[in-house]
Design a protein around this nucleic acid. Sequence first.
DNA 1: TGTCAATATAATTTCGAAATTTTTGTGCGG
DNA 2: CCGCACAAAAATTTCGAAATTATATTGACA
Lengths: 236, 236
Amino acid sequence: MLSASPEKSLSDRIYRQLREDIIAGRLLAGAKLKLEGLMQDYSVGMSPLREALARLIGDRMVVTEAQRGFWVAPLSIEELNDITRVRTLLETEAISASITHGDAQWMARVTQTFTELAEIEAQLPRTAESLPAHLLETWEQKNRAFHAALVSAAGSPITIRFRDQLYQQSERYRRVSLAVSRGWRSVSDEHLAIYEAVRDRNVLRACKMTEIHLTRTAEEVRKAFAQLEATERSSA
Amino acid sequence: MLSASPEKSLSDRIYRQLREDIIAGRLLAGAKLKLEGLMQDYSVGMSPLREALARLIGDRMVVTEAQRGFWVAPLSIEELNDITRVRTLLETEAISASITHGDAQWMARVTQTFTELAEIEAQLPRTAESLPAHLLETWEQKNRAFHAALVSAAGSPITIRFRDQLYQQSERYRRVSLAVSRGWRSVSDEHLAIYEAVRDRNVLRACKMTEIHLTRTAEEVRKAFAQLEATERSSA
DNA sequence: TGTCAATATAATTTCGAAATTTTTGTGCGG
DNA sequence: CCGCACAAAAATTTCGAAATTATATTGACA
């Protein structure tokens, strides 16, 4: 989909690497980001590292306190709720506009990404326990591509940008959730419902299905967090 | 309103200074930002300067191209239209939520900021020609405070953050517009209409008046830009 | 034993210059 | 006169270390 990343500068490369590592949970929420350590781990100097962190602050992936350093942005149920609310607003708006203005090429892109996503989801096991990492990565990529395709004809770069930012933040929550989750619920059915509504250019139904999809996903995350907290309490 | 900026680090100070200078138009849209020159002008070293620029990229105040440097983000009618559309969406959503959830303290803040804004607007001359710079600065501050107060009880940090970003971008356009504008139109009346609707907790009317206000402001900017282009063509 | 000040340690922030890359300028050949 | 290779200049990007600030440790005193 996207052309191979430019990564013309070290600063750019580190920015993307850090972002991926935070989203994937390899850098844990709330963890202190020690500059010395990061320089070693990512093999860069101070300057590009700090530039990358400055950009991640804008993405809300990193938080900072003057003279005290950087931390991976913490996760909270309150933030999850806010992300879900605003993302629903932007995503339904963008899908409406896409359905209204999208041409045949857009629809082909939607169909293509949906087909690829459905193919992966057919292979998913019932429980997350046995999920190989490479399958999860592939699913994440296909899921992102499908949702991106849906809104891609909105004709509003700003809506797209804000939505992308919220999508990335959501992904952090979803990954934590999947690590303790009991399964894949009816995600596949929800994607199908969205796809069919969009294919039929049924704006109202597409929005409703999208809202349901995002709400249910958030609900899963809340459950996983509750379970996680219970585990922590019992081990303490 | 806001407490005195922390500015605990040089990087922070430069970030704010550059942002203000871009918004106020002291750094012109599209201008090349030469690092050597900025280091001189703002009396800082390379590191904090580049960190500040990295953050401004996230705010869409600066654009960059790897190995080629930084520029003040350009202005365009297309972007103005997009900003206005998305800002209307977020601002009406936030005002609705504020009216629904806002308490007496919130309403007091709205009344206070409106009163202060109305006071300034009563002093505004009919034409922008004779407007002293300090009055413009005061108006900008009061206008920002009023619009911020309106949405401040929305209970959605993310909506507020996105709205703030779009407000800042809008301000750039508005300042260019005022530099060639013929007057202050009925801004004061529009603010009054919004205030009264909010005071009466009339959600629908508050949203409608907000939409009208933002749409008319954008229209003024478009006119100013058209006039500016005409001037440029005749002088070329 | 607990608290506070003084000191040592560790971490962040900033500077200045070296290394890369792009841009500009120059001269040669077609 | 135009285009192209090549060298010079200018600008960006990166490194490494000095300066500054926060944190931890120690020891004295109540």
